[in-house]
Nucleic acid binder design. Sequence first.
DNA 1: GAGTGACCAATTTGTTCATCTGGTCATTTT
DNA 2: AAAATGACCAGATGAACAAATTGGTCACTC
Lengths: 191, 191
Amino acid sequence: MAVNRKKLILDAAAKSFSQFGYKATTMEQVAKIANVGKGTIYTFFTNKEELFGEIVQNLIFEMKQEAEESIDVNLSFYENVHRALYRLLKYRLEHQFTIKLLQEEKEIGTPAVLEMVSKVEAEIVSYIKEKVEIAIEKGEIRKCDPELTAFMMLKIYIALIFDWEKRHKPLNKKEIAELFQLYLFKGLSKF
Amino acid sequence: MAVNRKKLILDAAAKSFSQFGYKATTMEQVAKIANVGKGTIYTFFTNKEELFGEIVQNLIFEMKQEAEESIDVNLSFYENVHRALYRLLKYRLEHQFTIKLLQEEKEIGTPAVLEMVSKVEAEIVSYIKEKVEIAIEKGEIRKCDPELTAFMMLKIYIALIFDWEKRHKPLNKKEIAELFQLYLFKGLSKF
DNA sequence: GAGTGACCAATTTGTTCATCTGGTCATTTT
DNA sequence: AAAATGACCAGATGAACAAATTGGTCACTC
């Protein structure tokens, strides 16, 4: 085995998905980019969807690493959540692949893409959930449903970063951090 | 004038929009339901979009009334916000018209519908914003950007009521009230 | 003059058919 | 023999054209 054909195919597919999206990427195109016969792809992947799935799986792994790197044990729970979420969402924003994915989800609604996007979201929630559980155990935050709390954290973050931007001037990183702390940790109540 | 033709048309249009959505409602259909010549509609409304707009305007008015009715000066700010929001979202859920609207927005993305949905949302935020401003003045809550806070309140509420339901068992009224209080007022922080 | 529906331009919808694409497998290459 | 391949096929897709529908107008009626 002179070259790793599977990796060749994965790279080619990632490249094409990033550039043209899931639907507009043909298996022939992937084969051509990978310098591989079309049939060869099917010796490694059952079908187009599985090939796609494997790339997403990879993405999830990288995102987790990003998040993990951003965590600093000396900082508070809320500070770490903020840092991790910020990095995660920035990661999404910076990677052509995720941008194309989100775009295709909204504009075309390709089922396979829809499924993967929710999968990624579920993974993020699951990841935060773990951190929430630890924080509760450590007594860093109040008792609460970890999954629901993780879910709300993500939602609040997305609202602050993406939704607010749609009709208002974007918030900067510091503002987002402060607002996240205000709304989720300190609360609006004065006491 | 034996009958109020304008009202007749508005009722007919509301009925048809509720049943079939904006796009699938034809002016001929409205005319037929209203027992009116098609041309007559155009003596009251410039075009289909304006007719639609007037019905939405009406909806907003009714929603405001609903909210206003639910407010009790003896209760705390957060309690009132919760009562108003709950009533508002329940109203949305209960009215075929709003359901069809939301459905059409997601499934077809009819531009006129998209515009109206954001208009309704903007109105809700603006309404909450006023209440937030008063609460800040009265010292009932911390100082914060009233519009952003109103925006976040709505987002958090929608997340609790609609988004969470998509993949989990729905929260009941009491749970929503408590969670809303936890996340937005008390905060996750223990101190 | 308020009300109307036949009429028209423009858009939408339905249909057809040539092209394309995911996936297979007999054949070739290593 | 195992791995790789691309010609091949059934079904999906979409471009192009035709037919039907619809928003909006206006000459005419009551």
